[in-house]
């Protein structure tokens, strides 16, 4: 079923929308959850949250890219669960490594109390991603949006793992430079 037809079912409040979305993107969303959460059961519960959130948000949303929209809901739910588990010193998956890598992007001058407003930071990240060459952007998002392992990214793109590391390394440097340059221009 085409995405357009699935979204129409959501708008018509036809519950077949949920089954259609699960059939088409269940595996995809499960992979997103599984990357962040080490536990299979947690990942399944996260998927259930995804379908519920999709039902509650479409309408009013009419996503043009259903895969990206559903994956975003899954990522949000999985991260929330991971953060709750981290507070209780549980959890695993790639999330811990991703957090550590991203800490490298925080400019040295930026202390814990100095933060861009959420909206400004999102806009800055959008500009950062827009200026990346397409392949670098895909690799960056695979790591920091999807939480894919380095090995998985290397296999997907047919790269060596050291090449993936180099690309991410450079992307993080560009992000840090951009944050450093514009992080205090509020």
């Amino acid at each position: 079923m085409e995405d357009r037809e699935i979204v129409t079912l959501f708008w018509q409040r036809d519950e077949r929308a949920l089954q259609a979305a699960a059939d088409k993107y269940g595996g995809y969303c499960r992979a997103v959850a599984r990357n962040i959460l080490a536990d299979e059961q947690d990942a399944e519960e996260c998927l259930n949250d995804t379908w519920l959130n999709a039902w509650n948000s479409i309408p009013p949303h009419r996503p043009e890219t259903l895969a990206g929209y559903l994956a975003k809901l899954t990522r949000y739910a999985a991260l929330k669960r991971w953060r709750d588990e981290r507070a209780q010193k549980r959890g695993g998956g790639e999330a811990a490594l991703v957090y550590e890598e991203l800490a490298d992007c925080i400019p040295a001058r930026c202390g814990p109390d100095e933060a861009l407003a959420e909206k400004e930071l999102a806009e800055l990240l959008r500009r950062f991603l827009a200026q990346l060459p397409a392949t670098q952007r895909r690799v960056f998002l695979c790591r920091y949006w999807y939480f894919d392992s380095i090995a998985a990214i290397a296999a997907q793109f047919g790269f060596s793992e050291s090449k993936v590391k180099s690309m991410l390394h450079r992307s993080r440097k560009r992000l840090r430079d951009l944050l450093n340059k514009e992080g205090f221009a509020i």
């Binding site: 890219t65 990206g68 949000y76 999102a122 690799v139 998002l141």
Partner: peptide, 12 residues
């Protein structure tokens, strides 16, 4: 990063 354009996310 989670707010990235959905087209880019799907393209990845």
């Amino acid at each position: 990063i989670g707010l990235a354009d959905e087209t880019w996310v799907a393209d990845a």
